[in-house]
């Protein structure tokens, strides 16, 4: 049993990802000792939760066999509409957030409804939604970033405040990411609905035949993903005290890359929150480390792409060896 469980730990996709993450970190540290400097770690930790929070929702959605390309656009819509209501409409931040998140909820619900009840693939539905939401944001702002917002508010401290541990600056968003990560971990691995999510992505008709309300679960996952993307957008915008209609462009692809690099299958049925957290760290660290190592800016994406591909090849090989057809 001892050796069996050891080899099963080795076979887990998140273990592969974790080993590679450690290797990458060691590599960057050897190449540039500023990689582990407090300033660099602060920078890494400031950005990471914003994409990471979206990645948590995306992991659950992918596990159920769907995905959402509209998250980057929602990342802009929620804060832009919030700050417009605050700056131009004179609403309190609290009320503006409630209204903006109600709209965000509707975006997710509409995605889920069109995918499950009308039967259009999530690729097409959420691609269209990306255009609609991004377009709406551009129209609302006339294409310009909003004025910087210097209002002080307890919510701003709670969502985007920061404090120091030694010389490392920690943002509140990191704590939110950690808490939401634990929640997602619980939902997927321990809660009853997690069993349903995996079953739906693994074999939808089997799940339905067992009485699992597959459509309802999927609709709520689309809603959760939209809400998390909106929350990430609001955190980001409160941190930089402004909101831009083009914020979050291409985040959808970055987030999906993070999730699959962590070992979650694009085809559904296999999801790992731990893997996603590793994937989020990995992509942020690679983007950060490549700059520190001095790779020329234009060649940057080549490296990111190659590393993502290498990870996916590794996962594919591990899956093949443990599966029986």
């Amino acid at each position: 049993m001892g050796s069996g469980s050891f080899s099963s730990v080795l076979k887990k996709p998140e273990t592969t990802s974790f080993i590679i993450l450690v290797l990458v970190m060691v590599g960057f540290t050897l190449a540039n000792d500023r990689f582990l400097s407090p300033l660099n770690i602060s920078n890494l930790l400031a950005f990471m939760p914003e994409l990471g929070i979206i990645a948590l929702g995306m992991t659950l959605l992918l596990t159920a066999g769907e995905f959402d390309l509209s998250v980057g656009a929602v990342f802009a819509l929620t804060p832009v509409s919030t700050l417009l209501m605050v700056q131009n409409g004179g609403l309190s931040l609290e009320l503006a957030l409630v209204i903006a998140f109600a709209a965000t909820f509707l975006v997710g619900a509409l995605n889920g409804f069109l995918v499950t009840k009308v039967g259009i693939s999530s690729f097409l539905v959420t691609l269209s939604m990306l255009l609609i939401v991004r377009g709406t944001t551009l129209v609302l702002t006339q294409g310009f970033p909003l004025n910087s917002w210097d209002g002080d508010n307890w919510l701003r401290t709670a969502l985007a405040g920061s404090f120091y541990i030694g010389t490392v600056r920690i943002y509140a968003s990191l704590i939110w990411f950690a808490a939401l990560g634990l929640l997602a971990l619980y939902v997927l691995n321990v809660a009853k609905v997690g069993n349903w999510i995996t079953a739906i992505g693994s074999n939808r008709s089997a799940a339905v035949a067992r009485g699992v309300p597959a459509d309802k679960v999927k609709i709520w996952l689309f809603i959760a993903t939209s809400m998390l993307a909106g929350l990430a957008g609001v955190i980001s915008s409160l941190r930089i005290a402004s909101a831009s209609p083009v914020a979050g462009s291409q985040y959808e692809l970055e987030v999906i890359a993070m999730v699959v690099v962590g070992g979650t299958a694009l085809t559904g049925g296999r999801g790992t929150i731990i893997g996603t957290i590793i994937g989020v760290l990995m992509l942020r660290i690679i983007r950060n480390g490549i700059v520190l190592v001095g790779v020329p800016g234009l060649a940057f994406n080549i490296f990111v792409g190659v590393i993502i591909l290498a990870m996916l090849v590794l996962h594919a090989r591990f899956n093949k060896s443990s599966e029986r057809k």
Binding site: N195, W196, T198, A199, S202, N203, A206, A209, V212, G269
Partner: peptide
């Protein structure tokens, strides 16, 4: 059903109780 009754990615135990956990 023919071969659609189980979710292949779930464990045996989780499949046995799927929908009645």
């Amino acid at each position: 059903h023919q071969d659609t009754s189980l979710a292949p990615d779930l464990s045996i135990a989780r499949n046995l109780f799927l929908g009645r956990e």
